[in-house]
Design a protein around this nucleic acid. Structure first.
Lengths: 194, 194
DNA sequence: ACCTGAACACCGTTCAAGT
DNA sequence: ACCTGAACACCGTTCAAGT
């Protein structure tokens, strides 16, 4: 048979990709344009490829998005730190990419991609704490999605009413309060400013 | 030619609408097809009208969606019941329409529509409890969005992995645990089966 | 006051065909 | 093994024009 794949073919502009390069380009584009504008056609354009080419690597957009959620989520450290530290590192992983929380929320709902975050939380909480870990995870996803959507809305000047208060103010306190309460520990002092 | 209209008027096919009738049709359609399939063109077709006609009543799809979120949300009783009861009635209001939680979550993030739910929670918690109320609301939105997305995914057979356990099992317990913990009350017994 | 008709700039996905 | 080209069935939104 013919085998084109293993040749280096130095001369021509043959954009040849695999699953990983597509996912990497998509993840970078997500961070630039946000989830709403992350289309298969845009990803293809970024890779100098026709939109249909993406369907060689991923069966659907949904499958590609699940892969992105997995990549965002695997950055969470698995070691059993205390709950608040684990919760914060989950939140920070979601914050690391634009609309990361929203993407992980919907993917996690569809049960695609193993819940690395749930495992980390259970390790932090000790044995027989599945329900608490689940509740904390739901809180983190809700809170972080809200906060992230709000950040982006405010930067694009979509504020609605007449009040001028910063919508992000006090959100860290709400986060710590929620996590600590569900974990059943005393609310800790705010961490030092980074 | 053909006349699909409901033809209450004897003579002509003049579908004449206002803001309210458009919103009502959209809300009914949301419940039938879900948020992902709720397009301006579908709503227009339901009203026997061209898509462009909707833009006389609403400036954008976003504005229409905000109105729907408001309608879903105003069903929440404002009286100061105990926290768990208030939280459950918020959840039930979101559950009352397909993808209600997801819709309210994104609308609430953009600060469109006054937060009727936040007010109700603060009334249940007593004075100086804004942060707790916010945390509970974030938990409710996260939890309910997850649960609702999961219900729909499972009914369409989008289950991914090999385990066969019901993804909805135990979710009521997680809800009660989360709300009670953030409110700072002892977890109550499960309510009687309806 | 409310709607039509036509257009513009987009979508996700499929599939035969190329190399 | 990986991609092109063309098509199909859609999107949200604008705007002149009709009644």
């Amino acid at each position: 048979m013919f085998n084109y794949s293993e040749s280096m073919s130095p001369d021509h502009n043959q954009a040849r990709h695999d699953r990983d390069s597509v996912a990497r380009a998509a993840l970078a584009l997500l961070d630039e344009v946000g989830l709403a504008d992350l289309s298969m056609r845009r990803i293809a354009a970024r890779l100098d490829v026709q939109p249909s080419a993406l369907y060689w690597h991923f069966a659907s957009k949904q499958e590609l998005l699940a892969e992105l959620a997995d990549r965002i989520t695997t950055r969470i450290p698995a070691g059993s730190a205390d709950v608040l530290t684990t919760a914060r590192s989950i939140r920070d992983a979601l914050f690391a990419y634009r609309d990361g929380a929203e993407l992980v929320l919907s993917t996690y709902a569809l049960r695609l991609g193993s819940s690395h975050a749930q495992v980390a939380l259970e390790a932090s909480l000790g044995p027989a704490s599945t329900e608490r870990a689940t509740a904390i995870l739901h809180f983190i996803l809700g809170h972080t999605t809200l906060a992230q959507l709000r950040m982006h809305a405010e930067s694009h000047g979509a504020a609605a009413s007449g009040d001028e208060i910063d919508p992000t103010a006090g959100l860290d306190a709400v986060f710590d309060l929620g996590v600590a309460a569900i974990a059943g520990i005393r609310a800790s002092r705010p961490r030092d400013r980074a």
